[in-house]
Design a protein around this nucleic acid. Structure first.
Length: 423
RNA sequence: GUGGGCGUAGCUCAGUUGGUUAGAGCGUCGGGUUGUGGCCCCGGAGGCCGAGGGUUCAAAUCCCUCCGCUCACCCCA
C-alpha cells in the first residue's frame, strides 16, 4: 500500500492553491489599507510559549498540542495558534520599542490534534492580525473591521453573523465570575454532565451549551453585560459606535466566550450558517495582559484570526486557470532546434510560452496547445523552414498568418504584447 | 476521546435473491485527418471491489476484526 498523508493533514492541490493565493492577496490588500506590516515566526516553539500564552488549563494546551522532545530533551510544540509566538518574537526583539503602536499580520499553518471534521483539520491555516500598544476602542473596531472586510470581499456578506461581547477586565470580571459560580452551584442539579465539568474549567463556556434544558436554566444566570465596570462599558459602547460608522453589521451576544484564557474586554466572532458545526470563520478580541505575561512590558493588545480553510469553503469555485500567450508546435529536429532560441527570447520579454518536450505529431501538439489555453499557436516545421515563414494561428478565431523568420521573435513580442494591451 | 454514515477505475458512481470474464459517464492515451486543437465517431490503457480472517461448491455482495474517509459530539479559526 502506498504511503498516505497523515490524518488531518491535507495536500493542497493546484486548484485549491489558486484559491488560497487569491485569499492571501485579498488579505494583503486589506492590510495595506491599514498600514499593517507582515511578521513571520517559526511554526515550532518551546512548549512554554504556548503554556504561558494560551493558558495551562485550556483544551488546546491540555490535549490538542503536537508536543515532543527535541534531540536534546527540550520540549517543543508545533504552534496551535499564532498570537503567543508573535508576542514572543516582539518581546525578544523589543519591537515594541520601535513604534508606539505595532500593527502586525501573519499567515500560515497551525496544528491541533483534534478529530478532523468539516472545517477542522489538524494542520490548518490562519490569517492573523495583532495590534500591540493601544488600549483604545478604535483599535478593537479596526480589528473587527479587518476581519469583516477580508471575509466579505471573498465570500460576500450573505449568511454571515458578527457577534460581539465584552468579557470585562481584571476589575469587573472576577465579580461576575463569583456571582456566576454561585448561581451555577445552586442550580447544578439541572445542568448536564458536560456543563458541570465546564463549571470547574471555564464557567463562561456553559453559555455555549446546546442542551435545551441547560439553556433554559441559564436564562436567569448573571451575564457579564450587567457587571461591566464603567470603563469597560464605555469601551464597548465606543467600539460598537465605530463599527456602526464603518458599516459593519453586528449583534451583541452576551454569552459569547473565547476558548483562550488571555482575552479581556472586547471579544468577537464571525460565523456563517453555511459552514456546519465549525461555523466560526473569523474571531478574536482584546488581550491586554498577555504581553506582560509573556515576559514583556505591560502593553495592551487586540487581534483576530481568520480560518483559511473555513473561508475557502465559503468562497466560490476558483476562476479557471489562466492560459498562456503562445504554444510553439515545432516539428522535426531542425525546426525544434531553432525554436529554442525563440522560446528563450520570448520568455525574457515576458511572453508565456509552452511547447511539447517530445517531437510529437502536429495533431498531438495542437491538442496540447488547446489544453494549455494558449492564445496563439506557432506552427513551424520543415515546410516553414524551407519557405522561411512560420504560421501563427489564433486559437480563438482560427485565423492564420505567415510571419517571416528573419525577425520572428521580435514580431511575436510585438503582436502578443499589443494584443493583450488591447484586451 | 465518543457516536453515526461510507469505502468498487485518476474522478463521480452502477453492480439484481451470493452465480460465469466487475460495468457506465467523465478524464487520459491513440485512431478517424501520412501537417492543424475544441465538437462528433471508433478503439486502448487503467481495478488485490480498503485490508485480514470466516461462512459457502461459489463472496464486490453475508459475518467478524482492523484500517481509512466523512459528519456530528467535544472544542475552536
Amino acid at each position: 500500500m502506498a504511503i498516505k498523508a497523515i490524518r488531518g493533514f491535507k495536500d493542497i492541490l493546484p486548484e485549491e492553491a489558486c484559491s488560497r493565493v487569491r485569499l492571501e492577496e485579498t488579505a494583503r490588500q486589506v492590510f495595506a489599507l491599514c498600514g499593517i506590516d507582515e511578521i513571520r515566526t517559526p511554526v515550532l516553539e518551546k512548549t512554554e510559549v504556548f503554556k504561558r500564552g494560551i493558558g495551562e488549563h485550556t483544551d488546546i494546551v491540555e490535549k490538542e498540542m503536537y508536543t515532543f522532545q527535541d534531540r536534546n530533551g527540550e520540549s517543543l510544540t508545533l504552534r496551535p495558534e499564532a498570537t503567543a509566538g508573535i508576542i514572543r518574537a516582539v518581546v525578544e526583539h523589543k519591537l515594541h520599542g520601535t513604534a508606539p503602536l505595532l500593527k502586525l499580520f501573519t499567515m500560515g499553518p497551525m496544528f491541533r490534534h483534534e478529530r478532523p471534521q468539516k472545517g477542522r483539520l489538524r494542520q490548518f491555516h490562519q490569517v492573523n492580525v495583532e495590534y500591540l500598544g493601544s488600549s483604545e476602542p478604535p483599535a478593537d473596531a479596526e480589528i473587527i473591521w479587518l476581519a469583516w472586510e477580508i471575509v466579505t470581499r471573498l465570500a460576500g456578506s450573505e449568511d454571515l453573523l458578527v457577534e460581539i461581547n465584552s468579557l470585562g477586565c481584571e476589575k469587573c470580571r472576577p465579580v461576575h465570575r463569583k456571582e456566576l459560580m454561585l448561581y451555577l452551584e445552586n442550580n447544578q442539579q439541572d445542568l448536564c454532565e458536560d456543563c458541570r465539568r465546564r463549571m470547574k474549567v471555564n464557567p463562561l463556556r456553559i453559555f455555549d451549551c446546546k442542551n435545551e434544558e441547560c439553556r433554559r436554566n441559564l436564562i436567569l444566570a448573571p451575564v457579564m453585560k450587567h457587571y461591566l465596570c464603567p470603563d469597560c462599558a464605555s469601551h464597548l459602547g465606543m467600539v460598537l459606535d465605530i463599527l456602526e460608522a464603518y458599516g459593519v453589521p453586528f449583534v451583541q451576544n452576551p454569552y459569547l466566550v473565547r476558548g483562550l484564557d488571555y482575552y479581556v474586554r472586547t471579544t468577537f466572532e464571525i460565523t456563517s450558517r453555511k459552514l456546519g458545526a465549525q461555523s466560526t470563520v473569523a474571531a478574536g478580541g482584546r488581550y491586554d495582559g498577555l504581553v506582560k505575561l509573556m515576559g514583556g512590558p505591560d502593553i495592551p493588545g487586540v487581534g483576530m484570526a481568520v480560518g483559511v480553510e473555513r473561508l475557502l469553503l465559503l468562497m466560490g469555485e476558483a476562476e479557471s486557470r489562466k492560459g498562456i500567450d503562445l504554444f510553439i508546435a515545432a516539428l522535426g529536429r531542425e525546426p525544434r532546434d531553432e525554436a529554442y532560441y525563440w522560446i528563450g527570447y520570448l520568455r525574457r520579454h515576458g511572453i508565456s510560452v509552452e511547447f511539447s518536450f517530445a517531437d510529437k505529431s502536429l495533431k498531438a501538439q495542437m491538442k496540447q496547445a488547446d489544453k494549455s489555453g494558449a492564445r496563439y499557436c506557432l506552427i513551424f516545421g520543415e515546410n516553414e523552414l524551407d519557405s522561411e515563414r512560420a504560421i501563427l494561428r489564433d486559437m480563438k478565431t482560427k485565423e492564420q498568418e505567415e510571419i517571416d523568420l528573419d525577425d520572428l521573435p521580435e514580431a511575436l513580442v510585438d503582436r502578443i504584447s499589443n494584443q493583450s494591451a488591447g484586451e
